[in-house]
Structures are given as structure tokens and as C-alpha cells.
């Protein structure tokens, strides 16, 4: 397989690939940590445990903890309807699910201002009841829901399509109820893909910047997420502080990549086991 390209071609291409990845990906990753520790470990710890950082961390985790499960429930419902039944409008629905990926993050924030901003009928009505959405936590959660919307559905739909519904139909014939079928027949076979989708959605939820920036109103300590906090510190010329917070996000990104690779390996093994039966 590898013998077909001449050795010098092989070495040249590998050198180009590694050089490119080294400059474009490895150097930035390394620089995040080097800049974060530019003034020593003490400064790093002070920046990471700063109250503003911790409150941004809390809001980031809250938004992710709401968005990821809600989108997972949607993904499960959509995948069941779209892969277990055939109906008119099915392919349109599949296309619509991908829509949020085609929308710029900035526009993702803007459309919620258009729907729920203080000047809109709906926003005015909610404001009259004392409910603030835009420039407040609910707006951040909604923007996060939008940008992470397709992740779980688009992992589950191709997988469940491939698996087919023979097992579930057998369960119906044997007298199982809907919930029972889902829990005992479907869920065990899609568990890994579900977790995979959740990990991707969670990573995007924690890292989202543009959409959240537009709806947040940047009230420090109140509606600041970690990525927004990075921007504020950076714009205040507090480079060490910005990179200290950024290093937390980079660590989380590395953990995501690690988890993703472990899951991909297990998904491949599960598929091979199923194919080998």
C-alpha cells in the first residue's frame, strides 16, 4: 500500500504535511500555554481563580448543561421519526436540521434579537412581565441551543438509518411497548453515537463566541461566558489573564479531542462486531 509512492515523494509529502500542521495548529496550541505562564505559575493561578473568571465559568457550564441535553432529546425524537418511518417531507426536514450550521454565529444571535429584543412585540410582552431574555442569561442559553442544534441529530440519523428497524419490529410483534422498545432495543445500539454527538455539542456550547457575544450585552460578572471573558481581558491589554482563561478552554478542547478519538475507536469496533455477526 505505502510502497507505491517513491521514498523521496513520501518523505517530501510527510514533511510538507507536518510542517503545515506544526505552523498552523501545534504552534498556536503551544503558544496559548506559554503566554498563559509568561508571568509564572502564581499569576496564572490568580487569573484562573479570579471571581470574574469563576462566574464566567459558571454561566458557560450552565448554558452547556441546558443546551446539550435539550438538543439530545430533540435529536432522539427527530432520528426516530426520520429513520423509522417514511413520509412526505422527510428529506426537507433532514435539510432543515442542518440549517444552523449554515448560519453565521453572529446572525444566530441577531435572529433572537429580531424575535425577542426589547422593541419586538414578543420581547415587549415578556419584558412587561419582568422577563428579560436578550442581554441576559436566557438569551445566552437560546443562542447556545441554536448553534449546537444539529450535532446529536446528525450523528444519530445516519446510524439509525443504517441499522434499520428489523429489531424494533420484532419487539413490537413480541408485544413490547414503545418506551420499552426504545430503552431496551434502540438505545443500547445508539448509545455511543449519542454520547459522541453530546461531546461535540458540549464543546461547541462551551466555546461559542459570536452568537453569545451578540445576545450577551457583555455585563461583566453577570452575562459573561468564558470565551467572552477572554475577549474582555485581551482588549484590556491583560494578555496573561486572557491566555490563562484561554488555556482552560484549550485544555477542555484537548479533552474533547481525546474523548472523541476514544469514542470513534469504540464505534468502529462496535460496527465491525455487528458486521461480523
Amino acid at each position: 500500500m505505502t510502497g507505491r509512492d517513491a521514498a523521496w515523494v513520501r518523505y517530501l509529502l510527510i514533511a510538507i504535511a507536518l510542517g503545515f500542521l506544526g505552523v498552523m495548529l501545534v504552534a498556536p496550541l503551544a503558544a496559548v500555554f506559554i503566554e498563559a505562564f509568561a508571568k509564572g505559575a502564581g499569576a496564572y493561578c490568580r487569573n484562573v481563580t479570579d471571581p470574574a473568571t469563576l462566574s464566567a465559568l459558571r454561566l458557560t457550564l450552565t448554558a452547556a448543561a441546558i443546551a446539550a441535553p435539550l438538543n439530545a432529546v430533540f435529536g432522539l425524537a427527530a432520528a426516530w421519526a426520520l429513520t423509522r418511518f417514511d413520509f412526505k417531507g422527510r428529506s426537507l426536514l433532514i435539510t432543515l436540521i442542518d440549517l444552523p450550521f449554515a448560519v453565521s454565529p453572529v446572525i444566530a444571535g441577531l435572529i433572537y434579537i429580531a424575535l425577542l429584543g426589547a422593541r419586538t412585540p414578543l420581547g415587549g410582552w415578556l419584558g412587561g412581565m419582568g422577563i428579560e431574555v436578550i442581554f441576559a442569561t436566557p438569551g445566552i442559553v437560546l443562542a447556545t441551543l441554536f448553534v449546537t442544534f444539529p450535532f446529536v441529530a446528525r450523528e444519530l440519523i445516519p446510524l439509525m438509518q443504517e441499522q434499520g428497524s428489523d429489531d424494533e419490529q420484532a419487539a413490537v410483534v413480541l408485544g413490547a411497548g414503545g418506551w420499552q422498545i426504545f430503552r431496551m432495543v434502540t438505545l443500547p445500539r445508539i448509545r455511543l453515537a449519542l454520547v459522541y454527538g453530546l461531546i461535540l455539542a458540549n464543546a461547541r456550547a462551551i466555546g461559542e463566541f459570536g452568537a453569545v457575544s451578540v445576545v450577551s450585552g457583555h455585563i461583566r460578572g453577570l452575562t459573561n461566558t468564558l470565551p467572552l471573558h477572554v475577549e474582555i481581558l485581551y482588549n484590556e491589554y491583560n494578555s496573561v489573564g486572557a491566555f490563562a482563561v484561554a488555556s482552560l478552554l484549550a485544555l477542555f478542547a484537548l479533552a474533547t479531542i481525546g474523548a472523541k478519538n476514544v469514542l470513534e475507536w469504540r464505534l468502529r469496533r462496535a460496527r465491525e462486531a455487528e458486521g461480523g455477526q
Binding site: A17, L18, L21, L25, V26, A27, P28, L29, A31, V32, E35, P105, L200, A203, I206, G207, E208, F209, G210, L226, P227, L228, V230, E231, Y234, S239, A242, F243, A246, L249, A250, A253, L254, T256, I257, G258, K260, N261
Partner: peptide
Amino acid sequence: IVDAIVDLPFALPTAVSGIVLTTL
């Protein structure tokens, strides 16, 4: 490891890539 690192731009928040590329 090279294969895994290719996903870094998907996983790294855009604000982080923004400030680090600017610094570099």
C-alpha cells in the same frame, strides 16, 4: 496524534484561536 490534532480547530473556541494567532 497528528490525525487527532487535525480536529483542534473544531474543538478550540474561536476566541482562543483569534487571540493566539494575533499574538503569533
